[in-house]
Amino acid sequence: MGKEQDYWKAETVAFLALQSIRGVGFKTLYKIAAQKISFRELIKTDNVYYFEKMLRQKLDDSITESNESWMQFKLDLWDKGLVLARDYIKRNIRIFFYDQDLFPQQLKNIPEPPMWLFVEGNYMTLYQPSVAIIGSRKATEDGLWLTKFIVAAIANQGLTSVSGLAEGIDQKAHIESIRFNVPTIAVLGTGIENNYPRGSENLRMQIVANGGAIVTEYLINQSYSAYNFVRRNRIQASLAQITIPVEWKIKSGTAHTVNFTKDYDRFLVMPYLHQSDLENAEIKAISAYRRGRVFSVPDQSSDLIMFLKQPEESELIPTQAEQGQLSMDL
């Protein structure tokens, strides 16, 4: 156990060290990790050409001109990683790698899984049953109310909430989770050092202070992009047993999480308030999905709460589309 722990400590230092090299980005390090190449062994290598090839970087001639300068470069690199690793320990930030026992199992079983996770706060939340609550950045009063209702429904059920810290539904999910004492996980579309969106710093601190966690696979100072947010959404969908999209549209960022949820064969749940909502393309899309469920609020509130608590045992509850077919059969 001690040797294994030492191995992962060294991998953490090496991983952080390599990020300090200008030009070394996410895709390069992801490819190295996916090939099961040790970051520590890469820094230890005597072969400078192998080092450059793997990192896709041409080092300055002053580094490669002699064996002494090459060794000094690696020692300095290691020191940079060591300083960062110690700082992260003080700040309660951990890094878990794909092959580590502590890496969440549900994230291992998806296409293109994360090769590592930065986790700030209570990493134990990653192993608890969870519900992803996601949705529009431009939330209406109805959407905000439904989000609050959903969080209240999972309170005291041993569940964790998952969302993306975005304005609107996501931030409402985190805020209400804190109010209802539900541990909440914010999955970022940026590096752990970046605060996005602006003004979310205080909420991040509250999430951690109240037993939740901040999670990302992106490199330390990596900025946001549309691609990064789409890729981030697969982590939300795979962490949670159930995804609940609120006020989403077929063509939206939330739709990516909905589609990932379908790809991973997880449950999709959509509460609705008005009878007219049943005509929405979004509800029809969820009703048509094998593990999709829609619930009228407040009429089916108790059914929704029961489902959120024990989805596997409730799997025989027919979807809206199946209910219509049953009525025709009768």
Rank of each mutant, 00 (worst) to 15 (best):
S287Q: 09
E312C: 00
P298N: 02
Q310S: 13
N280K: 15
F260M: 08
K249R: 14
G292L: 03
S296A: 11
V258I: 10
S287R: 08
V269H: 11
L308N: 04
V294L: 06
V269C: 10
A285P: 01
S302R: 11
I286Q: 05
W248A: 15
I283N: 13
T257F: 02
Q300F: 05
F307D: 08
T257A: 14
K251P: 00
G292I: 01
R291H: 12
K284L: 12
F267S: 06
E282V: 05
R266S: 11
Q310D: 13
N259D: 15
I250E: 14
S301H: 07
K309L: 05
P298Y: 06
Q275W: 10
K249V: 02
L278D: 06
K251I: 03
E313R: 12
H274P: 02
A281V: 00
P271R: 14
L278T: 03
F307P: 02
Q275N: 15
D277I: 09
N259S: 14
E313Q: 12
I286N: 06
S301W: 08
H256K: 03
T254W: 01
W248S: 15
I286P: 06
I283C: 07
V258S: 02
D299C: 02
M306D: 13
I305A: 14
E313L: 08
E279A: 13
A288S: 15
R266A: 10
I286W: 06
V258W: 03
E315W: 06
A285I: 02
D265G: 08
F295P: 01
L273I: 05
V297M: 09
I286R: 04
F267D: 09
H274M: 05
F295D: 07
V258L: 06
G253C: 10
L308I: 05
R266W: 04
S302T: 08
K262P: 03
D263K: 15
I286L: 03
Y264N: 08
P311H: 03
F260L: 03
D299S: 11
V269Y: 04
V297D: 02
A255W: 10
R293A: 01
T257Q: 11
Y289I: 00
V269W: 07
D263A: 15
V269I: 06
V258T: 04
I283L: 15
F295S: 07
E279H: 12
L308H: 04
K249A: 15
S301I: 12
S287K: 01
E313W: 01
W248Y: 11
E315F: 05
L268N: 09
S301K: 14
Y264D: 09
P271F: 10
M270Y: 06
P311V: 00
H274C: 09
A285C: 07
F267R: 01
P298F: 09
L268V: 11
R291Q: 14
F267C: 10
K284F: 07
S302K: 08
N280R: 13
M270E: 07
A288G: 14
H256F: 15
P311R: 01
K251C: 00
D277C: 04
K249C: 04
A255K: 08
K309P: 00
S301V: 12
E312T: 06
F260D: 09
R290N: 10
S301G: 13
D277N: 13
A255Y: 07
D277K: 07
K309A: 10
G253Q: 07
I305L: 12
S302V: 05
S314C: 12
I250Q: 14
Q310A: 12
F267M: 07
